[in-house]
Write a protein that binds this DNA or RNA. Structure first.
Lengths: 327, 327
DNA sequence: CTGAAAGCGCTAACAC
DNA sequence: GTGTTAGCGCTTTCAG
């Protein structure tokens, strides 16, 4: 990989000159003769010079790199995509650090390479508690490493409210919530309860572990309950529920409506296609980057609204058969 | 961020000493007194010293970073996951570079930061042709930037053969291939044709554009054909086909079997669940990293077998209703 | 044990 | 226009 020194030698000028030409400084600070400038430029091009940006990082003590820590779950990609693309717009790049091992190793890695910020995608609570408190004294801007910064960009509860409100608006009254034992499920359940009570309806919740057998079992219980609608804490629950209905010849949405949460790719392809509260992963990723970037730039006055999901209406809550059902 | 110099000052020793202690060189090369060693270690810890690895990159002229260029499609995540995790095992990390813009900008970025290797995930042919040939003279190890290195790790045709063979073994004879107009679809079609002919069966292929309306139209044509089985070029085709059957009350697999390709997450949740030729994205990602890593390490003798997919059997090709159908 | 020197690639200030 | 010096953070060698 050729350096400025090499260009200087090849072109028969000093490194100082090369530096000035290549940085465009010959316009204001110094006036270099046109032939010299051309010669340097030509030589640099011919030799295939590419600036070593690592050096800038060393000199300034900081990089333009944001570390993203992730488990790479199935639905992680839109989040990362949002983060990466927003970063690119600000000339930042993303370094991926897998989390399967020790989270402190991952964090250390980030510090060693002097990253400008850190974004953790969907950390478990237990992992957060595992973080060595010493890490935080480096003052690296981060999101997702603590419970407070974790849930800040997407409002689970409020989004879930939208789902319940939607079902009520559709005319359903006997609405049951199908949940599981995770913190997120509980937040979504809270939204459901709140809206039900506000409308004088009695909330009813069935929870299960996230294992296929368990979900099937609970599905059957739910079917026997003969509800008008079932609001699910996530799409996996909803999709398995739909499938069990299919097997038992329970027609959806005729028997009852089913609403998911997450709007995962598979929800476009189930039978019937699944209505779902959209979790805007992509926008979430963008917002996370934006928040970190504002911290990096010391813009403390940044105002933002937590994101709220909207219902994506498909067949499972209405019989509409639009040509765009797969979109 | 504190440096060795700061530690030296604080501990009242020379930087040389600090360097030797921190690199563990005091064991063999020099013998430093225990109290000095302890003092340096303690000071480093107290001040929260973390080595600046960017400097190593500058000095050695190379980093341990692999650049991954990607569009971040829906099914990209397992590939990236495989790549990242394999990289982590070799102390390499992954930088993500989005591709929406100019691919040459992305490549330039990689060179500027002196990445050790480049892996492009699912480049379009047209993007490959857009690459400035000058790039290649930097000799950065890469995979996926040229047609030759692109298809090398996963054998599309052979995997498709497995699918057709599976259907034939199941007793189906009138097997139709549902394809689209992409290069990959064509490779999979080739496998199908080969196996059909080898078994004295007549291949029959219907292709369409990848638009929902088109896929629905072709689905109806296929249903009218009354085949015994339909092998699809990808899961999106298969899932929409299944859904159209559902709507038209054509029972699958009773009316005919449906086999997908790709084994996407949604295939576990369709009704019926979709049998599909598994494309091992995760392993593909790992293998891509391994190939790049071998290039970096100059291990030219590396032998590897292109990956081949296997049929994941679910309900759409058999009526089995195992408890594990959602796995 | 320490200090000095050279080197990685580059910037910036200075005198000539 | 050039050469020198200093500095970013660190390694390595070598004389004291």
């Amino acid at each position: 990989m050729i350096s400025m020194k090499a260009i200087a030698k090849e072109a028969g000028v000093s490194r100082t000159t090369v530096s000035f030409v290549l940085n465009g400084r010959y316009k204001d600070d110094l006036k270099l003769s046109e032939p010299i400038v051309q010669k340097v430029l030509e030589t640099a091009d011919r030799l295939g010079y590419v600036r070593n940006k690592l050096v800038d990082c060393v000199v300034t003590g900081k990089s333009n790199v944001i570390a993203v820590l992730s488990h790479f779950g199935d639905y992680t990609i839109p989040t990362i995509k949002g983060c990466v693309e927003a970063a690119a717009e600000h000339n930042c790049i993303i370094k991926l650090i897998p989390l399967e091992k020790d989270i402190n190793r991952a964090l250390m890695h980030a510090v060693e390479f002097r990253v400008a910020g850190i974004f953790a995608d969907s950390l478990q609570r237990s992992e957060m508690e595992q973080i060595n408190p010493k890490f935080f004294r480096y003052g690296i801007p981060s999101y997702g490493l603590t419970p407070e910064t974790h849930k800040i960009v997407f409002n689970q509860k409020e989004s879930s409210c939208r789902g319940t409100e939607y079902l009520i608006r559709k005319g359903f009254r006997k609405i049951v919530f199908m949940g599981c034992y995770t913190e997120i499920s509980r937040l979504r359940e809270d939204g459901y309860r709140e809206v039900m009570l506000k409308n004088g309806l009695e909330p009813r919740v069935l929870c299960c572990d996230m294992y296929p057998e368990e979900i099937c079992r609970i599905s059957h219980e739910l079917i026997d309950l003969k509800p008008e609608a079932i609001q699910c804490a996530n799409d996996s629950l909803a999709l398995i529920l739909l499938h069990e209905c299919f097997i038992k010849n329970v027609r959806i949405p005729e028997a009852f409506a089913v609403l998911g949460f997450g709007n995962v790719p598979g929800s476009r392809f189930s039978a019937p296609t699944l209505s779902s509260v959209n979790e805007p992963y992509y926008e979430t990723g963008r917002l996370h980057f934006q928040l970190i970037y504002d911290l990096i730039c010391q813009k403390t006055e940044h105002r933002y609204e937590p994101l709220i999901g909207e219902v994506i209406e498909r067949e499972s809550t209405t019989s509409l058969q639009s040509i765009n059902k797969y979109l």
